[in-house]
């Protein structure tokens, strides 16, 4: 695991998101929420919308405009009434004008094999 440079802090304007690729292929979205930066996987945990396109940031809160799932980027807590899953993120810091992310391997959401739908014990409770 190591800190990787993703971009310059000035590459991502306040209240915007931008997608980058590091290590020759891991996609990562940097979100500038005004008082800091967050490094997140590029898709919404709900229905895989590309957050660099569907996401908007206002008041520290990232909202996916597709179905209004939202998270506070400073605390990574779920925000609002629609959100049902946590957002995942890479550790992230700003150093000498660069944005660095701590990346071991690509973070992905478990849309496929490890889907909620496969968790028999979860669905067995009544």
């Amino acid at each position: 695991m190591s800190w990787k440079k993703v971009c310059k802090a000035t590459d991502v304007a306040p209240n915007t998101l931008k997608k980058f690729w590091i290590d020759g292929g891991i996609p990562i979205v940097i979100a500038n929420y005004g008082s800091g930066f967050a490094a997140i996987p590029p898709m919404c945990p709900h229905m895989e919308e590309p957050l660099e396109i569907s996401g908007v940031i206002s008041n520290c809160v990232l909202t996916c405009t597709k179905h209004l799932w939202a998270w506070n980027l400073a605390t990574l807590e779920q925000h609002g009434t629609e959100t049902e899953k946590d957002i995942k993120s890479y550790q992230c810091k700003e150093e000498n004008g660069d944005i660095l992310a701590l990346v071991e391997e690509e973070i992905v959401y478990e849309f496929d094999d490890e889907d909620d739908m496969d968790d028999d014990s979860f669905f067995a409770k009544s």
Partner: peptide, 20 residues
Amino acid sequence: ALRMLIMEARLPAEFIRYDK
């Protein structure tokens, strides 16, 4: 319109209604 209601009107999700 959703972007405008989130960014400019600053409405929370529960007060933005549309058929998704």
